[in-house]
């Protein structure tokens, strides 16, 4: 399948991972078997990694906290940032880990059951790692938009029901 169609399928799945091959096929104008095949290929090629849900945890569990932690490192010869970053990324609390431009080196997103859990993670696990020079922890206070989804006040459909 041509690259443009593949990209379109990826964009559609990124918005709604539950779309079936049939539905995707109708949307992009291909047959369902070809779409299923392309999806399988992209899964095998490591392009499509996982199908997930966007959850507003605040509505069901007010204890969950998320923090974004800026990490300054002392990079080591030969391995650069990769070894430390991959090490940090292995902790299950870490939802995301990026190498950043700017004053700090790594940006680590941590999700945990409570504030104390995050504090423990930072003080016991993260800052004690060899190569971590300093950390700055920012707690997320409120989510307005996540992964392209507005959490509050998406526009209502207040069009008249029938118009010419």
């Amino acid at each position: 399948m041509e690259m443009e169609k593949r990209k379109e399928i990826l964009q559609l799945l990124q918005n709604d991972a539950r779309l079936t091959a049939e539905q995707l096929a109708a949307m992009v104008g291909e047959d369902a078997e070809a779409v299923a095949q392309a999806v399988r290929e992209m899964e095998q090629e490591g392009i499509l990694l996982r199908y997930t849900a966007v959850v507003d945890w605040e509505k069901i569990d007010t204890d969950t906290v998320t923090a974004i932690i800026d990490v300054k490192t002392t990079p080591r010869r030969d391995v650069g940032f990769d070894q430390l970053a991959q090490h940090i990324a292995r902790f299950p609390e870490v939802r995301a880990c990026y190498l950043m431009s700017g004053a700090d080196d790594l940006s680590v997103v941590v999700q945990a059951g409570s504030l104390r859990d995050v504090a423990n993670f930072v003080s016991r696990r993260l800052s004690t790692l060899e190569g971590v020079a300093s950390t700055t922890t920012h707690f997320i206070l409120k989510r307005y938009k996540h992964d392209g989804v507005l959490f509050e006040g998406p526009e209502n459909d207040d069009r008249l029901a029938v118009t010419p």
């Binding site: 069009r159 008249l160 029901a161 029938v162 118009t163 010419p164």
Partner: peptide, 14 residues
């Protein structure tokens, strides 16, 4: 249509 509730409208020209 306006008097009915819970409809899916494919009548909208916008």
């Amino acid at each position: 249509v306006a008097a009915s509730k819970g409809i899916i409208s494919l009548g909208v020209g916008e």
